[in-house]
């Protein structure tokens, strides 16, 4: 399945990012920079790392992950500076861990190496905790953010037959409909 701009808006809505009607403008100039600023609190490298993680945690049949994550994340962090700082600090922790074993940053690892790192850091079994150890922070700020963006949106939940997942204002029709074959 291909992720589209409409999916980004759905994910932002599920994430409680205010009035999504204004998000189109943000998406238009949503590029990140090399270093964080007040206006752009997330860097290109942060976004690249989120994309690299999404390629591991999303189903393999999903395409256009990069544009989905980039557009979602840029708007999300602009709406929540605290979250933006958490993302930046947690990406740095992830890279610090990777630097002990590899010459590259996490985003530059192969897909299988990226999956291995998550397992080595016990991110798969970690409880999400913004103030916890590295694996718990990665689960909170990075992995669960990506999973939430996907599976709390009509696109991701729709793969499972839930077109109007909790948190999405998808109306009061779908609950009456039978399974879509």
């Amino acid at each position: 399945m291909e992720l589209t701009r409409r999916d980004v808006l759905g994910a932002l809505s599920a994430a409680g990012v205010g009035s999504v009607s204004g998000c189109s403008d943000l998406l238009e100039d949503g590029a990140a920079g090399e270093s964080p600023t007040e206006d752009d609190p997330i860097t290109d490298h942060d976004v690249e790392t989120l994309v690299a993680l999404a390629e591991v945690v999303y189903p393999s049949g999903v395409t256009e992950i990069e544009s989905f994550v980039r557009e979602y994340s840029v708007v999300r962090v602009r709406e929540d500076p605290t979250y933006a700082r958490g993302v930046g600090e947690t990406v740095a922790r992830l890279d610090d861990y990777v630097a002990e074993w590899h010459d590259d940053a996490y985003a530059d690892l192969s897909a299988s190496a990226r999956a291995d790192v998550l397992e080595q850091m016990a991110v798969d079994t970690a409880d999400p905790d913004p103030d916890g150890v590295a694996g718990e922070r990665i689960r909170y700020y990075l992995v669960n953010e990506l999973l939430y963006a996907f599976y709390a949106s009509p696109t991701g939940a729709g793969l499972l037959g839930l077109e109007n997942p909790p948190g999405h204002p998808g109306g009061t029709t779908s609950y009456r409909e039978g399974p879509h074959e």
Partner: peptide
Amino acid sequence: APADVAMTADSF
């Protein structure tokens, strides 16, 4: 819900 499962799952 799917998101409930995803955010507490130990698989990716």
